[in-house]
Design a protein around this nucleic acid. Structure first.
Length: 282
DNA sequence: CGATTCCCCTGATAGC
DNA sequence: TGCTATCAGGGGAATC
């Protein structure tokens, strides 16, 4: 499931691959996910050139040269493939997980940007570039987890106001810190040696510092691996990421902890699973 | 303010 | 073998 590292991987690749390309046509078999409507999306984007690609939390933004932008959220199972006349028949694109194509942007020079989304939770929206900050999902975002402005001091301020709350829950809240999802909250807490259900007030100063550094470290490292593909995530070449090979606890229920060999367990926080090692985390 | 539940979807998995 | 019920999950909305 795309979180900050996966989205950053996609954004970096799109920025390189699509700069200057113009959008010639739009196809979808799931118009429900195209906002505000398929017709207005088409009207906004067809004929424009792609000027740049950015990320806001887990939102992908492609800015066009006509004052519009395309905002894309991959949600759980979405990923974007960039196909050209040269790579269209590549082996990676044959991968079954790359077959759930529900939207296609036809670009100049026979290039396509294809949106594969098995669960159909993802969406794409055309908006005025100047109004991006007002989009509900973006306006409400807290500070980006990899922003230089997200400092340890800032992290402590965020936690300070929420002493009674559970750390594993707060890490997922995009309105506080943007970009962390289920994979990286488990990994950051594992790295910091903190059990997910600890309350914030129970954390020592040292633990908070360690957690902060773990968040940054885990996210940066996952980006170097082009993200985690525990299931369906693929990069724009249709290739899985690599971070699942070095995961500590996420999705590893029943397997030995890589640090100490204790069997990894799973608990529920809210409605979501968190994974942990009861020996390395306390 | 926070906690909980529901919803959107469908492949995978467990149970029968 | 094949059917059916349940689960997973990002995040927004509704409810308590």
């Amino acid at each position: 499931m795309p979180e900050l590292p996966e989205v950053q991987t996609v954004v970096s690749q799109l920025a390189k691959k699509l700069a200057g390309d113009s959008i010639e046509n739009v196809w979808t078999d799931w118009p429900k996910a195209v906002r505000p409507s398929l017709a207005s999306f088409e009207k906004a984007v067809v004929g424009a050139r792609i000027a740049g690609t950015r990320r806001f939390g887990k939102h992908i933004v492609m800015d066009l040269d006509n004052g519009k932008s395309i905002v894309i959220h991959l949600k759980m199972t979405g990923h974007l493939l960039v196909k050209t006349s040269l790579n269209r028949s590549s082996k990676a694109f044959q991968d079954p997980y790359n077959q759930f194509i529900h939207h296609i942007l036809f670009l100049s020079q026979d290039k396509t940007l294809e949106f594969s989304d098995m669960r159909k939770f993802g969406w794409m929206e055309a908006v005025s570039t100047e109004k991006i900050g007002k989009l509900a999902g973006i306006q409400a975002l807290g500070i980006d987890a990899l922003s230089p402005n997200f400092t340890e001091k800032r992290f402590r301020e965020i936690l300070e106001k929420r002493k009674k709350r559970v750390i594993g829950v707060v890490l997922l809240e995009q309105n506080l810190i943007a970009g962390i999802g289920n994979i990286y909250r488990s990994e950051a807490l594992f790295n910091a040696g903190i059990l997910p259900d600890r309350t914030i007030e129970s954390l020592s100063d040292e633990e908070v510092g360690k957690l902060f550094r773990s968040i940054k470290m885990v996210l940066r490292r996952a980006i170097r691996y082009r993200g985690t593909s525990d299931g369906d995530f693929r990069d724009t070449d249709g290739v899985p990421g690599g971070f699942q090979r070095v995961l500590g606890v996420y999705g590893q229920t029943g397997k030995p902890c890589p640090k100490c060999g204790t069997i990894v367990r799973r608990m529920k926080l809210g409605q979501r699973s968190v994974f942990f090692c009861s020996h390395c985390q306390s």
